[in-house]
């Protein structure tokens, strides 16, 4: 790949790659960075095969860069926050008999577009409140539709760990939505 090529490709696919990264990382700066790294990697190695489309090829590189960022976020979380099945502390949600502390209220994801937009805003804020590590796992699972084994391999955790973490993330996000959406 030549620099000229790279410039054309940046103009042609830069926006798409940026949106792709933003949808997964949800952080504009990180999204810019991974796009930059993608082009950097693209000019460095010439593995582009003419039969594949540049966009597909670049997206493939980008995916790896995104996973690297997620892995790094994951490592930055102290080991003490790693959860095991036995110590997923759910006291804020359940009493010692396993009953709901706050019973789930009736609310629904809105059907009309305007309300949906507001809902997305609240949802985004709720996802941002969840600890980074949980949010990463949650987004990888719920956005990528990847299977657990694949995600666990990428993040170096056990499947049991992943179930507990996903459970906790979902509980937290649901509760936050309940508080902030019902009262909107």
């Amino acid at each position: 790949m030549t620099t000229e090529n790279a410039n054309d490709w940046l103009n042609e696919h830069g926006d798409y790659l940026y949106r792709f990264a933003l949808a997964r990382l949800r952080d504009p700066h990180q999204a810019e960075d991974v796009v930059q790294e993608t082009f950097f990697a693209a000019i460095k190695n010439n593995s582009f095969a003419e039969q594949s489309s540049p966009r597909t090829w670049l997206t493939g590189i980008l995916k790896h860069k995104i996973i690297d960022v997620m892995r790094k976020k994951n490592r930055e979380t102290p080991a003490s926050e790693l959860m095991h099945e036995s110590d997923a502390n759910m006291d804020e949600f359940f009493d010692d008999k396993g009953h709901w502390v706050d019973k789930p209220q009736t609310w629904d994801v809105p059907d009309n577009l305007l309300e949906q937009k507001q809902f997305m805003g609240v949802l985004q804020k709720c996802i941002d409140k969840v600890p980074n590590k949980l949010a990463t796992l949650f987004m990888m699972r719920d956005v990528e539709e990847k299977d657990n084994q694949e995600i666990c391999k990428e993040l170096n955790i056990t499947t049991t760990n992943a179930w507990v973490m996903l459970y906790r993330a979902r509980m937290g996000i649901r509760k936050c939505l309940e508080i902030n959406w019902i009262g909107h």
Binding site: A23, R24, P104, W107, D108, V109, F119, M120, L123, Q124, I127, M139, D142, V143, E145, R170, I173, R174, L177
Partner: peptide, 13 residues
Amino acid sequence: QIQKLHVTIHSIS
């Protein structure tokens, strides 16, 4: 709610 959330998050992305 959890199932609907799962679907919704996928569609936001």
